[in-house]
């Protein structure tokens, strides 16, 4: 199997001079296609920084990041937005749905930017919502949905473009136990369907869903538990 994510000597520094924060200090990571990885580590160890770079939401200060064999360091903003659209599905801890916009429209959003035609867009968005069990909530707005439901909409949005990887930053961090279980169940099924999943968590039960856990300490990978 070829690695879908290959990270070498990744560095990220916030700020400069005396106030500079070295969030990542030469991190290496390889994720194979179809893997399910949990990233754990103390608060402030650099997990989110790593995931944001993997999701092309942020750019590293140094090192290389190959996504599906492509070196993202050579990409300009326009190409990165294309990458985000086609290859990556990102799930945030705080859902990040477009406010005052229906679940369906939120899920359709990446498809609009992908240039998918209206009829097909609707069809795929409805299928994604059905996959997360929200076929009866398609016309609800985020403020009319529970936290768990909002996160499921966010997951539907992340998977609607059939991305190479799904990245989730503490997706259950704001959810109660039942909602967490549902969300993790969906991610399990996605992975069972062949999708690569990388997720950040604090909880061992969550990490237990993954094939392997990567521990991040002070911006480096400390050890890999199988």
């Amino acid at each position: 199997m070829s690695p879908v994510i290959e990270v070498r000597d990744l560095r990220k520094t916030y700020g400069s001079g005396d106030t500079a924060v070295h969030a990542l200090r030469g991190l290496d990571l390889t994720v194979q296609k179809g893997e399910y990885i949990a990233i754990m580590g103390a608060s402030g160890s650099g997990k989110s920084t790593l995931l944001n770079i993997l999701g092309c939401l942020d750019v590293p200060s140094g090192g290389r990041y190959l996504l599906d064999g492509i070196d993202t360091g050579e990409f300009d903003e326009e190409q990165l937005s294309l990458l985000r659209n086609r290859k990556i599905g990102f799930v945030f801890q705080s859902f990040n749905l477009v406010p005052r916009t229906t679940a369906l429209a939120n899920v359709e959003l990446p498809l609009v930017y992908a240039g998918v035609r209206r009829a097909q867009r609707r069809e795929r968005a409805l299928a994604a919502l059905e996959l997360v069990g929200l076929q009866d909530r398609t016309h609800h707005r985020p403020n009319e949905l529970s936290g768990g439901q909002q996160q499921r909409v966010a997951i539907a949005r992340a998977l609607v473009t059939s991305p190479a990887i799904v990245l989730a930053d503490e997706p259950t961090g704001n959810l109660d136990t039942d909602s967490s279980r549902e969300v993790l169940g969906i991610l399990d099924r996605l992975n069972a369907g062949g999708r690569t999943v990388v997720l950040i968590t604090h909880e061992d039960e969550v990490a237990a869903h993954a094939m392997r856990t990567v521990r991040v300490v002070d911006g480096r990978v400390a050890g890999v538990l199988v």
Binding site: G55, L57, E77, E78, S81, L82, L83, R84, N85, R86, F90, N96, L97, V98, P99, L109, P110, Y113, A114, R157, T161
Partner: peptide, 16 residues
């Protein structure tokens, strides 16, 4: 601006 961030995160190009 947050909404702009969300749109960018799901792949909206600057022009759109």
């Amino acid at each position: 601006i947050r909404e702009i961030g969300i749109r960018k995160a799901v792949g909206a190009p600057r022009s759109s």
